[in-house]
Simulated scan of single mutants.
Amino acid sequence: MDFAQYWQYTDIITKSLFFILFALSIASWVTGIVRIYQSYQLSNNVVTDLTNTVNSQMQAHSVTDASQRKLVTEQVLMQNIARYRFSSEKGLPILGTTAAIAPFIGLFGTVWGIFHALHSIGESGQAGLGQVAGPVGEALIMTGLGLAVAIPAVVFYNIAVRMNRKTMHLANDTAYGLLAKSIDSTPTA
């Protein structure tokens, strides 16, 4: 069976489900690749960015009291780590949602295809293997498409989450070091 024959046999609901799965697939691949690239960039730059930001804030405020330095450093660190966390989570809802719903969309397409095939068999009155195997096989294509969309989305999601955990670990480690350093030293002018 070729794709043109399959496409000709399907109805508007199956075609709609196909286009939905196709759109989800494109969205998850683009989002996944962009998210992994951005997570990699963020992971490489988080230590330097935090250090530079804290140093520039300390010079801008030019406080000499240790408690004031600690307070300014804590506020700058908390604000920037929250920004990093927000930035690192962009796109993850698209990947998670795609991974969760694509198999169900494929399953719905399968159920709809089998219903459509059984309805055709009921109208023709013939239930031989030739009449059942083709339409049921075509209906199962939707399950395969749903899985083909969901699996890459899950992989991208898991890779991005793992990279984000590493980034947040680096950010927190750097923050603790910078906080301790701000208490022990006086700012440079």
Rank of each mutant, 00 (worst) to 15 (best):
Q5D: 12
M58K: 04
V149G: 01
D184Q: 10
A102P: 05
L129C: 11
S88E: 03
S120P: 03
T48I: 12
A139W: 02
A148D: 13
S124Q: 06
I121K: 05
T51L: 00
A171T: 04
A171W: 02
Y157M: 10
N45L: 06
M58G: 02
Q68K: 14
Q59A: 14
L77V: 05
T167G: 07
D184V: 06
P103S: 06
W112P: 07
F22V: 10
D173L: 15
L140W: 04
V30T: 10
T110D: 00
E138I: 09
G96C: 08
Y157K: 11
G144R: 00
N55L: 06
N164V: 05
T31K: 00
I151E: 13
T188A: 15
Y176G: 14
G96T: 02
M168H: 07
I20P: 09
E89M: 11
Y9P: 06
E138W: 12
E138M: 14
Y176H: 12
I159C: 04
Q38K: 14
Q59F: 13
W29M: 05
G91K: 00
Y37G: 14
L92E: 02
V54G: 04
S124V: 01
Q131S: 15
P103M: 07
S185D: 13
A171H: 05
I159R: 03
Q126G: 01
G144N: 02
G134L: 14
Q79C: 13
P152L: 10
I121D: 08
V136T: 11
M168D: 10
D184I: 10
L71V: 10
L170T: 07
N52W: 04
S56A: 11
S120L: 12
G134W: 08
A175L: 05
Q131I: 08
V72I: 13
P103T: 05
A153I: 02
Y6T: 04
P187E: 09
K181G: 02
V155D: 08
W29F: 12
A139L: 01
F19H: 05
Y40H: 05
L71R: 14
H61L: 10
T53L: 13
G122F: 11
V76C: 06
I105T: 01
L50C: 08
Q8G: 15
A60F: 13
D11P: 06
M58R: 11
I105F: 01
